[in-house]
Structure formats: structure tokens, C-alpha cells
Amino acid sequence: MPVILPVEGVYPEFGNDCFIAPNATIVGDVVMGDECSIWFNAVIRGDVNSIRLGNKVNVQDGAVLHATYQKTKTIVGNNVSIGHNALVHGCTLHDNVLIGMGSIVMDNAVVHSNSIIAAGAVVLEGTIVEAGTIYAGVPAKKVKDISQELIQGEINRIANNYLKYAGWFKESVTEEK
């Protein structure tokens, strides 16, 4: 069973049709929308500040979402994919965003809609990622603007695939809510 714990009496809240992997951990002031999936060994810690996830967000294996005590919340829009082993900390991710595997997005960063953070990139504190761009590197910098085809093809394909993958497991895992 997933670890779902309150912090100071505040329990996580889940939307409809979500999949939570048996070894995921979700604690405290976390509110997620519909059709979200939280994968194996992912951790969402709403203990020191709130975390909000929109609809159709997938937090892939080993990813960590956290915030900063009494300072910065973590806000994630709709149709967002957070890649394996990524760290999302005290920042805002708008709609239709792909956070690549092993990347880091730090406090007060804002990733605008229809953007991709490349695998392994480090988005430093306070960085503003322009809408419709790819950022890569350490520290992350704009690499290029992305086409509508890439937005529709890559960002939406991955988010939709995770809906399908979650369906493979929902019948065999009893979700605690």
C-alpha cells in the first residue's frame, strides 16, 4: 500500500481516477486533480508547504516533489509529465509541460506552458522558462523554440501514455484514499 500520511491533521486529497503506486509516498497538504498517476518510489511531501497538482499529471518513478518551509509552494498545472528521478521544489509548472528524467527545478522557478525541460537539466532558483521552449543544460538555458507538432506529439503523447500505463495497474492495486 502507498504511504499516505497526514501532517498536523492535514491529509492528502485525490481527484477521480488516480493511480498511486504501492510504494509511492504522499504526505500532508497535497491536492491532486483527476487522472493523475504517482509512480513507484515517487515522493510528494506537502509537509512544509502545500503542493497542488492539476489534472492528468504523472509523477514518474523516483521523482520528488517538495516545497520550502513557509516560503514557496509547489504548483503543477494540467497535462504535466514529471520524469523519472526528477526533483521539483517550490516552483510553478504551468499546463502542458514535460520535465525530463533526472532534471531539477528549484524554488521560485516558473516553467510556462508548452515547454520542455531536458533530461538532466538544472533550472536554477528564480528562472523563468518561456512558453513554447526547450531548456537544457546546467544551469538550464533556452535551447530553442518548439513547434506545435512537438508540443502535441511529445508532451501530449507522454501524458496520454501514462493514462494508459496507469490502466494496466489500477485493477491489480487497491487505492487508499
Rank of each mutant, 00 (worst) to 15 (best):
Ile4Thr: 11
Gly9Arg: 08
Tyr11Gly: 03
Pro12Phe: 05
Phe14Gln: 06
Gly15Met: 02
Gly15Pro: 00
Gly15His: 05
Gly15Ala: 05
Asn16Asp: 15
Asn16His: 14
Ile20Gly: 05
Ala21Pro: 06
Pro22Phe: 15
Thr25Arg: 10
Ile26Phe: 01
Gly28His: 01
Val31Asn: 08
Gly33Met: 02
Glu35Tyr: 09
Ile38Asp: 07
Phe40Ser: 07
Asn41Gly: 07
Val43Gln: 00
Val43Thr: 08
Val43Lys: 05
Gly46Cys: 02
Asp47Ile: 04
Asp47Ser: 01
Asn49His: 14
Leu53His: 02
Leu53Gln: 07
Lys56Glu: 12
Val57Met: 03
Val57Ile: 10
Asp61Glu: 11
Ala63Lys: 07
Ala63Arg: 04
Leu65Cys: 07
His66Leu: 05
Tyr69Trp: 14
Tyr69Leu: 14
Lys71Met: 15
Ile75Leu: 13
Val76Thr: 08
Asn78Leu: 09
Val80Leu: 00
Ile82Ser: 00
Gly83Ala: 13
Asn85His: 15
His89Asp: 08
Gly90Asn: 01
Cys91Leu: 01
Leu93Thr: 00
Asn96Ala: 13
Asn96Gln: 15
Val97Glu: 08
Val97Cys: 04
Val97His: 02
Ile99Ser: 05
Ile99Ala: 10
Gly100Val: 00
Gly100Met: 02
Gly102Tyr: 06
Ser103Ala: 09
Ile104Ala: 10
Val105Thr: 00
Val105Asn: 03
Asp107Arg: 09
Asn108Met: 13
His112Thr: 12
Asn114Ser: 11
Asn114Leu: 09
Ser115Gln: 03
Ile116Asn: 03
Ile117Tyr: 06
Ala118Ser: 09
Ala118Asn: 04
Ala119Tyr: 02
Gly120Ser: 01
Gly120Ile: 03
Ala121Ile: 00
Ala121Arg: 04
Val122Gly: 04
Val122Ser: 04
Val123Met: 00
Gly126Thr: 05
Glu130Gln: 07
Glu130Thr: 09
Glu130Ala: 15
Ala131Trp: 05
Gly132Met: 08
Thr133Met: 06
Val138Phe: 06
Val138His: 08
Val138Gly: 08
Ala140Lys: 12
Val143Arg: 12
Lys144Arg: 15
Asp145Thr: 10
Ser147Pro: 01
Leu150Asp: 13
Ile151Glu: 07
Ile151Cys: 10
Gln152Ile: 14
Gly153Ser: 10
Glu154Thr: 14
Ile155Gln: 09
Ile155Gly: 01
Ile155Phe: 05
Arg157Met: 14
Arg157Thr: 12
Ile158Ser: 06
Asn160Val: 10
Asn161Cys: 13
Tyr162Ala: 14
Tyr162Glu: 13
Leu163Met: 12
Ala166Trp: 07
Ala166Gly: 08
Phe169Cys: 09
Glu171Arg: 06
Glu171Ile: 05
Ser172Asp: 11
Val173Phe: 15
Val173Gln: 12
Val173Ile: 15
Glu175Arg: 14
Glu176Cys: 11
